[in-house]
């Protein structure tokens, strides 16, 4: 029997006495492609940080491939929202990706690490930019570099925090194309507040707003979304995503 990529049992988390996550129970199977959707402030990023071991839940149990989150870091790749760091930083594309190969103090990057980093850049079609300073890239290119950095870890689970937020609509399609190539290699989890474009690309959706309202196939997510957004699903789901779907 293969291990689940992620298991959460009765996970709760509060920050400054405010409940952010409440009794979250869910399981993500290996090679699933799951979107966690919910409004801003609904606890999506907190959930990711718990999976990454950056935050510890107040109660409940989290297992990543059967291990404690902190002990599973070598299996997990992470794509943060790219806006949170200084683009004017003295670092080039290759060095950024190489950071994904970090394996401890006093350990030099080996030639194998360099090869894997280069392969990750090839995977995202950014190889020719490898010597470029990161501030000289477009938003979409930076995101590709950050995906390469996550892939350089050779993860079995890739977590993506609002990958749509920082790129324009044109880039979103190429992002999904890229991600779809990764589907058979690893489990993919993305969080998004934008119901629109996500739902027709992923296999499963989880609706999160402090509590987990729905988790299941993407096509049947309507009621869960209605509950978390407190408005008719006609407005938020049927209009936009289905039109996008037809365009394909």
């Amino acid at each position: 029997m293969s291990l689940n990529a992620l298991e959460m049992k009765d996970v709760s988390f509060s920050y400054n006495h405010q409940q952010v996550l409440e009794d979250i129970n869910f399981t993500i199977e290996e090679k699933d492609f799951v979107a966690i959707i919910g409004p801003n402030g609904g606890g999506k990023s907190t959930l990711l940080k718990i999976v990454l071991g950056l935050l510890t839940p107040d109660k409940g149990e989290v297992k990543v491939f059967g291990r404690e989150p902190k002990k599973a870091l070598d299996l997990v790749g992470y794509l943060p929202q790219h806006t949170h760091f200084d683009l004017d930083f003295p670092i080039d594309v290759f060095e950024t990706v190489l950071m994904g190969r970090y394996h401890g103090m006093f350990k030099n990057y080996t030639s194998e690490d360099r090869e894997i980093a280069l392969q990750a850049l090839k995977d995202v079609d950014m190889e020719r930019y490898k010597d470029r300073q990161i501030s000289r890239l477009s938003g979409g290119q930076i995101q590709r570099v950050l995906i390469a950095r996550a892939l350089a870890r050779e993860p079995k689970l890739l977590l993506m925090d609002e990958p749509m937020a920082s790129i324009d609509p044109e880039m979103q399609n190429s992002f999904y194309r890229l991600i779809s190539h990764l589907k058979d290699r690893m489990t993919l989890v993305l969080v998004s507040h934008d119901v629109g474009t996500v739902s027709m690309h992923v296999d499963k959706i989880a609706c999160l707003n402090q509590k987990l309202y729905y988790h299941g196939p993407a096509e049947e997510a309507g009621e869960g979304l209605e509950e978390i957004y407190h408005c008719s699903i006609e407005h938020i789901s049927h209009g936009i995503p289905h039109r996008v779907l037809r365009k394909h």
Binding site: L52, G53, L54, L73, D74, V76, Y78, P80, H84, F85, D86, F89, I91, E95, T96, M99, G100, Y102, H103, G104, M105, R149, R153
Partner: peptide
């Protein structure tokens, strides 16, 4: 370099 550039990611790859 890691903590200066992206502290969160550094933690995620197990950097102390």
């Amino acid at each position: 370099l890691g903590v200066s550039f992206d502290e969160e990611f550094s933690k995620v790859v197990g950097l102390p």
